[in-house]
Amino acid sequence: MVTQALSKPKLLVLIGPTAVGKTKLSLSLAAEYGAEIISGDSMQVYRGMDVGTAKATLEEREAIPHHLIDIHEPDHPFSVAEFQERSRSLITEIHDRGHLPFLVGGTGLYVESLCYDFHFSEHGSDEAFREEMRQYAELHGNEALLERLREVDPEMGDRLHANDQRRIIRALEVYHLSGQRLSEQLKVQKKQSPYELCIVGLTMDRALLYKRIEERIDLMVEQGLVEEVRRLKEMGYGLQHIAMQGLGYKEILGYLDGALTLEEAIVQLKQDTRRFAKRQLSWFRHMKDIEWVDVTDLGNFSAHLDQIHAIIADKLKIERQYH
């Protein structure tokens, strides 16, 4: 059982770039601490998008409770605000069950906004501006749209991926409506956390990480990524839906639409994913309170676990249940 501090609930967090090994470590840690996992991934919320989002298997999810996975159809515009609201409620419910809430994921804005209880300024919206930006992206491409953001907010431009059209447009809209950079707003948000936090970050040699990314994508193709995207396309989901602009889906749609060969789509996906991992690491470097663990030595899994156990004992003052 987790004994909760009177002032703040405990929250264990595991972050790191894609393919660094978060899932394997999180399952071991959750089993040892009696934790329930909250997904901090903006894509795993979507049903039918399993291979491309590298969800934990059904067996793994039966062994360890997982939350915020398979909660929406791919046409739902999942937002950071919804993520915050749902996660806050889950943290309370998990604590009430005597378990440890365990946030695991790589979507930096989602993780940081929950850990530090971000409150985003209400600047309203300008639907005409949004539509103008969507049309600009359709005409010139997402990379050109991202370049527009870099011109007014270079830091946010470097932290977002070109495929993340909705957040790029929102950042442009915030500047358009207020004259303020979204990156500056985020900086002033970093206040005291409402939780007793332990944030563990996984890192590894960059060349090894890129090799693991490429191997993971090859495995995804073997496991049926193309068939998954084809099924979604046949159900009527396309690039007009935010979910389908995610890594793996946009590139394979290009193949299914005849714009790319399968080989070209896979090469593009590997390149896009390497860039995404670089942006994830850039985002995490701006965060505070992270205890970094280098997991480059893949054969030393137990040593990595021991290092994390020591961090948890120091930060949260709790011990493993099973050891």
Results as ranks from 00 to 15, higher is better:
186 L>N: 06
308 I>L: 06
110 Y>R: 06
103 L>Y: 09
44 Q>K: 14
176 H>C: 08
86 R>A: 12
314 D>W: 07
179 G>A: 05
268 Q>V: 06
69 I>Y: 05
186 L>W: 12
15 I>C: 12
90 L>M: 09
127 E>R: 15
197 L>W: 01
14 L>C: 10
76 H>A: 13
23 T>G: 13
207 A>Y: 08
139 L>P: 00
283 W>E: 01
219 L>H: 11
52 G>F: 10
293 V>F: 06
102 F>E: 09
178 S>M: 11
60 E>Q: 15
189 Q>T: 03
163 N>K: 11
147 E>I: 01
51 V>L: 10
199 I>S: 09
132 E>A: 15
85 E>P: 05
288 K>P: 13
59 E>V: 12
106 G>S: 04
103 L>P: 07
160 L>Q: 02
84 Q>F: 09
200 V>F: 03
68 L>C: 03
125 S>D: 14
11 L>F: 09
235 M>C: 12
155 E>G: 00
102 F>Q: 06
1 M>Y: 11
171 A>C: 13
302 S>G: 04
25 L>W: 02
99 H>I: 02
3 T>S: 12
308 I>P: 00
13 V>N: 08
124 G>K: 07
92 T>M: 12
197 L>I: 01
22 K>W: 08
246 G>I: 06
259 A>P: 01
59 E>F: 13
118 F>V: 00
174 V>L: 13
203 T>A: 12
49 M>W: 04
96 D>I: 00
81 A>Q: 14
29 L>I: 13
283 W>R: 09
183 S>W: 03
193 S>I: 00
92 T>D: 14
169 I>H: 01
92 T>R: 15
63 A>C: 08
296 T>S: 12
14 L>T: 04
275 R>W: 05
166 R>I: 09
195 Y>I: 00
153 D>H: 12
65 P>A: 02
75 D>T: 02
308 I>Y: 02
239 L>N: 11
108 G>A: 12
80 V>F: 11
144 A>C: 04
99 H>R: 15
25 L>N: 03
216 R>C: 10
4 Q>N: 10
122 E>F: 15
62 E>F: 14
104 V>M: 06
224 G>Q: 07
147 E>Y: 01
269 L>E: 05
174 V>Y: 15
254 G>T: 08
118 F>R: 09
17 P>F: 04
270 K>E: 03
149 L>A: 01
226 V>G: 09
85 E>W: 07
37 I>R: 01
196 E>A: 11
216 R>H: 11
12 L>M: 10
18 T>G: 05
45 V>H: 04
1 M>D: 10
24 K>G: 11
204 M>Q: 14
55 K>W: 05
209 L>W: 02
98 G>S: 08
262 L>E: 10
138 E>A: 15
190 K>F: 15
267 V>P: 07
168 I>H: 00
323 H>M: 02
100 L>E: 04
14 L>H: 08
200 V>M: 07
8 K>G: 02
240 Q>H: 15
